[in-house]
Design a protein around this nucleic acid. Sequence first.
DNA 1: GTCTATAAAGCGATAGAC
DNA 2: GTCTATCGCTTTATAGAC
Lengths: 193, 193
Amino acid sequence: MTTTHELGTRERIVRATSRLMQRRGYEATGLKQISQEARATLGSVYHFFPGGKAELAVAAVRHGDEEFAAFLREVLDEADDPAQAMIVCAERLAQGLSDSGWLDGCPITTTALESSGRAPDIQRAADEAFAHWRAVVAARLRRSGFAGDVAADLAHTVVNTLEGAEMSAQVSQSRTPLLVAGRHLARLIDSYR
Amino acid sequence: MTTTHELGTRERIVRATSRLMQRRGYEATGLKQISQEARATLGSVYHFFPGGKAELAVAAVRHGDEEFAAFLREVLDEADDPAQAMIVCAERLAQGLSDSGWLDGCPITTTALESSGRAPDIQRAADEAFAHWRAVVAARLRRSGFAGDVAADLAHTVVNTLEGAEMSAQVSQSRTPLLVAGRHLARLIDSYR
DNA sequence: GTCTATAAAGCGATAGAC
DNA sequence: GTCTATCGCTTTATAGAC
């Protein structure tokens, strides 16, 4: 699942773009760098993505969307209680972030902010990703008996608090923001029981 | 406070940089654009900031730091109860964001993420800004009787949740993430009373 | 302090052979 | 589908007159 050796050219390009934009953002990521990292030529990049860098960014954001949604689904099922699951989720994010040398934060946030108000297609893809993640969280809460509207509201804050804490943890190179966020989200969820 | 007419050249440059990087981020903001917006020449920009774009970004982040800290101090004093103040704060942020046509999010987040792991001076300035904002929130909580460690933890989540909600609101062009965040933060704070 | 001109490098994108 | 060469433009930064 991590090896890129047997992947098709198109998939290698998308993964390289996703990874580079996660670490450096949209503007600082060059097409030359992408083609190098993907072991593809510039001609191949434009063959698969005639829309150029913007079209590439949309594909990368969608890739990050699926990646994080899968992580969420997996980690939210590791505890019986969804409140407890928040703590596990935040811990896992802190671990991954620190293991990457504080380089791999949210795969789409930087690109989302850079494109906000300036690249509608990319912005829409990012918006859809956040909505997708909220849907995963809301479904988990409903499965544990929370009412639909309460679950929907909580899903907003769960995703947004994790986003803010991940950003803060990355900038301060500290796990604390995420660990505190996990505990507070658990407490907030419990307050609705 | 909004007029730039009587300001010195250096201050005009800092404000133009701060505003441009708030809207477009670090990488997409050009020095030519900054000098134009600041009604200064490129020579003047390098005269005041010999370190170039990176030094300019540090000054802009510090400017955004003070700007948002002043906003926080002001809005947190508008309600007697700090929990109620969170709702007011989130509403005010939602109003400002929507009034700007969803362009003016957090003044430093995009730049902070873009520079994370690649421009230590800018990253440090952003880290100091977040710590500053947490200190303002923690002081307000302690003033209402919260214990120091509880207030410090809550300050983390208050700032990070507002950050995440502001980002999400900007991308989705909706006030909902911020309004929900305000209510949930109030509830979380109340749970410690 | 201000201004213009320009250097040096990098960018996204395209063309066209294979 | 892949590859190389290159166009046209923009970028940060510097030089030097005023």
